[in-house]
Simulated assay, not measured.
Amino acid sequence: MHFNRLHLAIAATLVALTMPVAAYAQPTEPLDGKALALNRSKGNCITCHEFKGGDFPGSIGPALNDMKARFPDRKELTAIIEDETKRNPETVMPPFGRNLILTDKEISAIVDFLYQL
């Protein structure tokens, strides 16, 4: 039987579709919230906030300390990072979630880090 390119492409697609999804799953590394908070193209929290372990902090925003005591409801702190303009329309804090600067997983990793401060 003779196969042309189209037949081979269809066959390859069918094989791929029948393979278990786990074969394609890549193990994911846990996200480092501190690294995200310091990363200039991601969280960049250090530009405006002072926190333990950060060098050359900004002073526009409040110091990030005792975060778990200040925000016992994790959802509140997550919402602030996602889009602080909902709570405070006058804020200069970027809406990291709404503007797709940070993913939900990255925001969660930053909250994990902040809860350690």
Rank of each mutant, 00 (worst) to 15 (best):
1 M>C: 12
1 M>L: 13
1 M>K: 12
1 M>Y: 12
4 N>G: 13
5 R>Q: 12
5 R>H: 07
6 L>H: 06
6 L>G: 05
7 H>A: 13
8 L>H: 08
9 A>D: 06
9 A>C: 07
10 I>N: 01
12 A>P: 06
12 A>W: 04
12 A>K: 03
13 T>K: 00
13 T>R: 02
14 L>P: 01
15 V>P: 00
16 A>F: 14
16 A>P: 02
17 L>V: 12
17 L>S: 09
17 L>N: 08
18 T>E: 02
18 T>W: 05
19 M>I: 09
21 V>S: 15
22 A>S: 13
23 A>V: 15
26 Q>G: 11
28 T>A: 09
28 T>F: 00
28 T>P: 01
30 P>Y: 02
30 P>H: 03
32 D>E: 05
36 L>N: 05
37 A>Q: 15
38 L>A: 08
39 N>G: 06
40 R>P: 14
41 S>V: 10
42 K>Y: 00
44 N>W: 15
44 N>L: 13
46 I>G: 03
47 T>R: 15
47 T>G: 14
47 T>A: 12
48 C>A: 08
48 C>P: 12
52 K>W: 06
54 G>R: 06
55 D>C: 01
55 D>I: 09
56 F>Q: 15
56 F>S: 08
56 F>W: 10
56 F>T: 10
60 I>W: 10
60 I>F: 08
61 G>C: 10
62 P>S: 13
64 L>W: 06
65 N>V: 14
66 D>N: 12
67 M>K: 05
67 M>F: 04
69 A>W: 01
70 R>S: 15
70 R>A: 13
72 P>D: 12
74 R>C: 08
75 K>F: 06
75 K>L: 09
75 K>A: 14
76 E>P: 00
77 L>E: 04
77 L>M: 11
79 A>H: 03
80 I>S: 01
81 I>Q: 04
82 E>W: 03
84 E>Y: 11
84 E>R: 11
86 K>A: 05
86 K>F: 04
86 K>D: 03
86 K>S: 08
87 R>Q: 11
89 P>I: 07
90 E>T: 09
91 T>H: 05
92 V>E: 07
94 P>G: 00
95 P>R: 09
96 F>Q: 05
96 F>R: 14
97 G>A: 03
98 R>W: 02
100 L>T: 07
101 I>F: 00
102 L>K: 01
102 L>R: 01
102 L>S: 03
103 T>D: 02
104 D>R: 09
104 D>P: 08
105 K>R: 11
107 I>Q: 01
109 A>S: 08
110 I>E: 05
113 F>H: 09
114 L>N: 02
115 Y>G: 05
115 Y>V: 07
116 Q>R: 11
116 Q>N: 07
